[in-house]
Computed example of a mutant assay.
Amino acid sequence: MPAFSLDPPQSAWCAELRALAAERLRPLAEKGEPGHVNRALVAELGQLGLLERLFTSGAVDLCLMRESLAYACTEAETALALQGLGAHPVHAHGTPAQRERWLPRVADGTAIAAFALSEPAAGSDAAALELRAEAGASDPVAESDGGARWRLTGEKCWISNAPEADFYTVFARTTPGAGARGVTAFLVPADRPGLTGTGLDMLSPHPIGALSFDAVPVTADDVLGEVDRGFRVAMGTLNLFRPSVGAFAVGMAQAALDATLAHTAQREAFGGKLKDLQSVAHQVAEMALRTEAARLMVYAAATAYDEGAADVPKRAAMAKLLATETAQYVVDQAVQLHGARALRRGHLLEHLYREVRAPRIYEGASEVQRGIIAKELYATREAAQ
């Protein structure tokens, strides 16, 4: 059973990341425009060498980066994570030409990546996606499109970094009626004819948009992995990134917990410090307990991924589920213990309160994670009989 504890170099690296996030990344984040890609922030992540580590490190390092950055600058954490999410399929399944063209630019922060799976009618049920990849090899205009083999027609929605990304990992249906087995992953540059997008005004401050595909031409050179095997590309990416979503959540929970410790230790109320009230002390203890439990599950899942364990899907789902639900609880309790001041625009907890809600939905909602966990448990039971 995978176990995890930080060694001294890892602890020192995390401290360094928190300091970098506070001193170099947060000022850039504060200059960004909510709902839009902050290219200066992404470029700085590249300059610091953090984006390159997305392709040279394992799941544990990814979680360490995400937790540490989230503690001090959630915008920097999210910018890094979205680069990884959008580009990992290229790293893991791309051709040499695809990797050579895009990965160095992602690593240095000059190209923005996006992961385009969700659709208006296919969010949690990703296998029900309807973006059509229609055969176009015999199309008279195919030759002028560089020999287009398919044309993508349909919509994507709730896509982080859309519509401002430079390229998209797009999942489209190449075989109608085949469910998850008829989906293909494509690398689609943003300048392809027929591809347009609009931004969505969301609660979370990072950019999210919708994409429209009007007979967008793609060829065999744009395929990531194998035709009709794109769902494996999607799920493999999510198995890596789901524990790290949990790390993001743990970073936010720890920031909220530390803010609460500082506040309750100095706040005068009812003739003493807030921390001297048993109800407050017990609540803080519960927040700490849940945060540490979530952290341990996140890093156990990441360790399992790095070791190639067979139960990664279950562990990844458990880590994301527990950590994101925990962070929601901890941040909410922190707001309650701070009172009205925590609701003032610009307060750390007001910011975290807006940030903490989305991770319970994206990359598989909490209900989806419970379904994955149950499915894996029953499959293990049946295999043992």
Rank of each mutant, 00 (worst) to 15 (best):
D214K: 08
R290Q: 14
A70V: 00
A133G: 01
R345D: 11
L289W: 10
I112F: 08
P207I: 11
A374Y: 14
H351Y: 03
D276L: 10
L337K: 10
R267E: 15
K314E: 15
S118I: 00
R192Q: 12
H351L: 12
D166W: 06
F55I: 00
F241D: 04
L82C: 08
L349E: 13
G154K: 04
T110W: 04
V335M: 13
A288K: 14
R315T: 10
A29G: 13
D332T: 15
T78L: 12
F115A: 11
P96T: 03
L187S: 07
Q333C: 12
T260G: 14
T175E: 12
L322T: 14
V335G: 02
A323M: 08
T110V: 06
V331R: 05
R341P: 01
T110C: 03
L69P: 04
A128P: 01
D108C: 05
H282C: 12
V90W: 03
P163F: 06
H93Q: 01
R149T: 07
K156V: 08
L103N: 03
Q283F: 03
L352A: 12
G209E: 06
A111N: 06
G308L: 10
L224C: 04
P2D: 13
A122G: 08
A107N: 05
A281I: 08
R26F: 07
R39A: 12
A162D: 07
R24M: 00
S366R: 12
E350L: 00
T219W: 07
R232Q: 13
A126R: 15
A342W: 12
Q98C: 03
V223P: 09
V188E: 01
H88Q: 08
C63E: 10
C157L: 06
A19Q: 14
V368C: 09
F55D: 01
Q278N: 05
E350H: 15
G177E: 05
L62M: 11
I112S: 02
M287P: 09
G123F: 12
Y378V: 15
M65F: 01
V250E: 09
A310T: 15
V218N: 04
D191V: 00
Q328R: 14
F213E: 05
T219R: 15
E307P: 03
S366H: 04
L117A: 15
V227Q: 13
I159G: 04
G35R: 07
V331H: 12
F231Q: 02
R345N: 06
L195V: 04
A265G: 15
R39I: 09
H36M: 04
Q385Y: 10
E134F: 00
A19V: 07
V170T: 14
A59D: 15
A234Q: 11
L277N: 03
S212N: 01
A107C: 06
L187T: 05
L200S: 08
I159P: 04
T196N: 00
S144N: 00
E355R: 12
A302R: 07
R149V: 12
C14N: 01
A43I: 00
D311R: 11
E286P: 00
L117S: 11
R39E: 05
R151V: 08
V42K: 01
G364D: 07
F4G: 09
D145R: 02
A59I: 06
L321I: 00
I361V: 15
G46L: 03
Q385L: 14
A210Q: 06
A121R: 08
E355F: 05
E155M: 07
A316K: 10
M252S: 05
